[in-house]
């Protein structure tokens, strides 16, 4: 009989204290954790392809550098063509930014390469016209012109800055914290100068060169959406599935 009493009492206390509502767990979105991977070229997939350009080739527009004698002197023999639309002899488009837009594991951290990406200002022009860089990776800005330049990227997701760089001055190192596809960079002294920086959270991106081709290596197996971005012709997307150690060709094309 006593046993019943004790059991009942225990049950009672149990009910009374469990009746309180469980505390609401504080939810914080998952910050990327775990070790930083670098692209595994050995058994990752490699993506290659080219960006074709069909239709009429737009006329090359010359840049008028008369306002700035120093720049004009640098190009007195061959006047400079604007690089907003550069169609390669083999009918492909140069300066197209190709990157893996989605499909990578969400909170995966990628190793940030130590070597900075160089963006040179020579002949009153950005060389190269377009670069890709990982978020947190250094961009090395050089001024190999005799005249003063000011580098004025205009991101909308990253903090904006505008630094002047004296001729022959020591290079400046800048990084971009958030992923932003194509930050325009201009120089207020030379309004025609324009370049684009693509800041990406992962290392799988490339810029088409003189032959209009791009290669992305070390892609872990999976299905991805590959996006190409061009200054004037906008973006094109394709979904592609790759297995381990697979060589896949993905071609894009823009109409003039």
């Amino acid at each position: 009989m006593k046993l019943y009493a004790v059991a009942a009492f225990a049950l009672l206390t149990l009910i009374s204290c469990s009746s309180d509502k469980p505390p609401a767990a504080a939810t914080t979105e998952l910050a990327p954790t775990g070790p930083a991977l670098s692209p595994d070229e050995a058994n990752g997939a490699t993506l290659t392809g080219k960006v074709a350009f069909t239709g009429a080739k737009p006329p090359l527009s010359m840049i008028d550098m008369s306002a700035n004698p120093a720049c004009e002197r640098a190009h007195k023999d061959a006047p400079l063509a604007a690089e907003d639309i550069v169609v390669n002899p083999n009918g492909t488009l140069k300066y197209v930014f190709v990157w893996v837009k989605s499909g990578l594991p969400a909170n995966q951290r990628w190793a940030i390469p130590a070597t900075p990406v160089v963006l040179d200002q020579s002949g009153c022009q950005y060389k190269p016209h377009m670069i890709g860089v990982m978020t947190g990776q250094n961009v090395e800005l050089r001024n190999s012109d005799p005249t003063n330049h000011n580098i004025h990227p205009q991101p909308s997701l990253n903090p904006e800055w505008n630094d002047s760089q004296a001729p022959g001055g020591d290079p400046k190192f800048k990084t971009f914290a958030r992923q932003e596809i194509m930050i325009p960079v201009k120089c207020n002294v030379h309004p025609w100068m324009r370049s684009f920086i693509g800041a990406v959270n992962h290392p799988f991106f490339a810029v088409t060169g003189d032959d209009g081709t791009f290669t992305i290596v070390g892609l872990p197996p999976g299905t991805y959406v590959i996006q190409t971005w061009h200054e004037k012709f906008g973006t094109v997307e394709q979904t592609v599935t790759v297995g381990a150690k697979e060589h896949k060709a993905v071609d894009f094309s823009y109409k003039g």
């Binding site: 004025h152 205009q154 505008n162 630094d163 002047s164 760089q165 400046k172 207020n188």
Partner: peptide, 13 residues
């Protein structure tokens, strides 16, 4: 200048 008017065309540094 960026401190006084963020996004101005006038370069800092």
């Amino acid at each position: 200048p960026a401190l006084l008017a963020p996004g101005t065309a006038m370069p800092s540094g």
